[in-house]
Design a protein around this nucleic acid. Structure first.
Lengths: 138, 138
DNA sequence: GATTATGTATTATAAGATATAATACAAATA
DNA sequence: TATTTGTATTATATCTTATAATACATAATC
């Protein structure tokens, strides 16, 4: 998994990291069950503080995107389907967010056809994880 | 124009205000050329500091969504079409943002049909401003 | 059992963002 | 002239972000 941080961005480092990992899971760059670098390793690779990586990992864990194993490191989880009360509480947030995105895009000159085309293009690039079969010894 | 601030949100007050105004312009709730409350008035109505409103207005001005008249107050502008270098610099930001939004939505169980339907529903609620004819004495 | 590496927690510090407060100023209206 | 406007400045308090240095329980490994 490749991560690129913009140290000049107003977006916090841990948020950039969290968002890139979510995107990587959605595009199949990270597969379900796949292990991520350890907090310390990734921090060293990126040249940032381990606690910054930990903050991103902790958020991803709370959102159900990651599972933490004490010794085996972090692994991509499918817990996001049930985490945070499931889909419903997230739906409202999605609608408000998407409404703002669409308003801005259209005010800048985009039209419905172009927007749907862009969405279709992005969706075509997804490779959604298939839930892992239940295993003994998780 | 109605504005509702969530004082418990992690989203800054000036950002909430800025986003709601952009959405209001996109939905036609605010028309082109329409005047907004003064910095002091809106601050009083919302029960927040005038400088917080000013920060939102200043950002909207920089983005081309508002024009400032010294005495007549702020007015909705169509400068967003040319502001910030125009459409191109904004396109990349839109793509990254939308990709993340779509990834999250699909990971939480949404499918392509549902997503396009939601977009269509939001787009149907838009009423985009028609550029004002050039007037003397702007 | 000892060692080691893991996620996690704690404490401290520095820098920046956010929000409020109190003024002040130039500009434009009345 | 007097008033209201956006804007700028200064100060302060609080929160967030990021780093740093440890420390600890846990689990794999030697």
């Amino acid at each position: 998994m490749r991560v690129s941080l913009d140290f000049n961005s107003e977006e916090p480092l841990y948020t950039q990291l969290r968002n890139q990992i979510v995107t990587a899971i959605g595009t199949g760059e990270l597969e379900l069950g796949e292990r991520l670098p350890t907090v310390r390793q990734l921090a060293q690779d990126l040249g940032i503080n381990p606690m910054t990586v930990n903050k991103a990992y902790a958020q991803l864990k709370a959102e159900g995107f990651l599972e933490m194993d004490r010794r085996r490191g972090a692994a991509v989880s499918d817990g996001f389907l049930s985490a945070g009360g499931g889909y419903e509480p997230y739906r409202g947030k999605l609608e408000r967010e998407l409404k703002l995105t669409i308003c801005e895009a259209f005010l800048r000159g985009m039209n419905a056809a172009e927007f749907h085309e862009l969405c279709t293009s992005i969706i075509a690039g997804l490779r959604l994880p298939k839930p892992l079969p239940e295993m003994e010894g998780n």
